[in-house]
Amino acid sequence: MTGHIVPKKVYYLIFLTLMVMTAITTAVAFVDLGRFNIVVAMAIAIFKASLVVLFFMHVHYSTKLTKMIVAAGVFWLAIMLLMTMSDLLTRGWMGVPGR
């Protein structure tokens, strides 16, 4: 809610987690996980972004209206990415040129 003061301790904890996650994602890039390199990298990036949104940007303490707007933004982004990729990724399945 408005006027909520987040303790500084929370910020330091989030900062530390973000730094550790950055180190992990960089290190993992040098390990061959095949197709899962991108999965791990994106999972860590989404986790980091969520921490920033929820705590640095105070969404965790915000009104429901603000939360809904954030969720709507993420949802529409997901529609754009998933719909487009479900098209591009499945075009070869039919074995028909141009489809």
């Binding site: 994602t25 960089t26 890039a29 061959d32 991108i38 990298a41 990036a45 980091k48 972004a49």
Partner: peptide, 17 residues
């Protein structure tokens, strides 16, 4: 900052193998 959190793995860390 969040935009960069995604740009870093996508541009720098991809498919090194």
């Amino acid at each position: 900052d969040i935009v960069w959190i995604f740009l870093f793995p996508l541009l720098y860390l991809i498919d090194r193998h």
